[in-house]
Design a protein around this nucleic acid. Structure first.
Length: 206
DNA sequence: AACTCGGGGCA
DNA sequence: TGCCCAGAGTT
């Protein structure tokens, strides 16, 4: 595990401005965009949220939409029946349980319909700057390929990353690993020839 | 732990 | 045409 510092240093130098690829102007908008992002590419989510947030920038306005209205906005995201229902319920809960603002703890965030551990960690790290590592499919895949974690479950990978990455780097590591997974260390055809980590990676095929 | 939801992009 | 995608909820 002594390879952590070197890998983090390379990632930091490679992705100095890495940030979430989801459009948002507020914690609420990031929350909605992240709920929508399940099993869907971020480019399509950004097309949807551009229209949705233009019409309903805040929770109070979005809560006025019916589930049917929401379905019309988000249909191209896939899983639209569940997501529309969850977004409607989440807006309602934000207003009547959390006084209209997005809560800042993982436990409270996970009380919102459609918000699991991964989504909650994304909100904590990106919206509030609270140290958290969202181990989505990208982070999980990259960590395992690099040999940083040998874990079947994302929860195990999250624990290992937290143990070996300094806490002040958690939010950044989250950005780096997700961005690297999207652009280089792709699930299908990883671009190992263009990867700054290929000399350190036991899975690299050059 | 396995199953289901789902339209769109890509091979 | 078949496979896969910034997961979460249910059983």
């Amino acid at each position: 595990m002594t390879r952590f510092p070197e890998i983090l240093q390379i990632l930091a130098a490679t992705y100095p401005t890495a940030q979430t690829a989801l459009n948002h102007d507020s914690p609420f908008q990031l929350l909605i965009a992240t709920i929508l992002s399940a099993q869907c590419t971020d480019e399509r989510i950004n097309i949807i949220t551009r229209k949705l947030f233009s019409a309903c920038p805040t929770v109070l306005e979005m809560d006025q939409l019916s589930i049917s209205d929401l379905e019309d906005y988000i249909r191209s995201a896939g899983l639209w029946q569940t997501k529309a229902k969850n977004i409607k319920a989440t807006c309602h809960k934000l207003i009547y349980t959390f006084e209209g603002s997005v809560p800042k703890t993982r436990e409270e965030l996970m009380l919102l319909p459609g918000v699991g551990r991964k989504t909650a960690n994304v909100i904590l790290a990106n919206a509030f700057g609270i140290p958290a590592i969202a181990v989505d499919t990208h982070v999980h895949r990259v960590s395992n390929r690099l040999g940083l974690a040998t874990a079947k479950k994302p929860e195990q990978t999250e624990i290992i990353l937290m143990q070996h990455i300094p806490e002040q780097l958690w939010a950044k590591a989250h950005h780096w690993l997700i961005y690297h997974g999207r652009k280089i260390c792709k699930a299908r055809r990883p671009l190992c020839n263009n990867c700054p980590l290929n000399k350190l990676c036991p899975s690299a095929t050059l």
